[in-house]
Amino acid sequence: MTEPLLMLDDVRATLRLRGGHQTLLDGVSFEIHAGEALGLVGESGSGKSLTTRAITRMLDPAFRVSGEIAFDGTSVLAMNQAALRRYRSTDVGMIFQDPRAHVNPVHRVGDFLTEALVRERGVDRREAERRAVVLLDEVGVRNPEQRLRQYPHELSGGLLQRVMIASVLLAEPKLILADEPTTALDVTAQSDVMAILDEQRRARGLALLFITHDLELAAACCDRLAVMYAGEIVEQGAHVYHAPTHPYTVELLGARPSIDQRVDRLPVLRYDRETHELLKAEAS
């Protein structure tokens, strides 16, 4: 087996609080190979976004991180500033959960999209714009030329999310960390975006860490799934969707509302970390 592109081994992130410590990532381990897609699912607040921030070393300085994170065999935690900068700008691309919090509101969409190509890669501005227009069109944005001249606040949530996706694809990284990249999109646009990510995986060996709440979507687009709960990966592998073994995953698969059927009350679940038991509870 070849070396994984990304490897996390026993990663812990601890926050010092007034009365002690809080461990928010609790021994996270997984690997992603080139061209592979790993789906990361799990409950809200379980540590999925923190995991992506640990991978890019963008965690709040208040966190203490231990364990090993290696990209292409190089320790990320040991990188110096120059190496880290290169790693962030050319090796990994990040699609953030909350795009509006990650764009500069006074920069036009066109500048945002082309800036990195022009500055870091020396691509001619006109050429960079041409590529941006092609990609915007591919992710289903109508009138891409016009969009380049607009400001972020003039774009709807879903349009901005697709601008983010296009910007990451433009940089052609080896690994994309996609944190709920399609939550603001309707299902038809989601289908477009996922199909493009799929193509890129095959064509360029792009690796993908795909965070989502939609298990069906994760199963359709990823080779393996990892399930997170309270800072830990409780289960991972190719079997997770068809034959989950962990009680939390089993319940998760059954909890989704259906498009065909309306129920009186939806099932709510609680997994108890201490006893490893699932407590089925109704919202009060």
Partner: peptide
Amino acid sequence: AALDVSIQAQ
């Protein structure tokens, strides 16, 4: 949209 199915159900 950004909630897992269980919290969403709640």
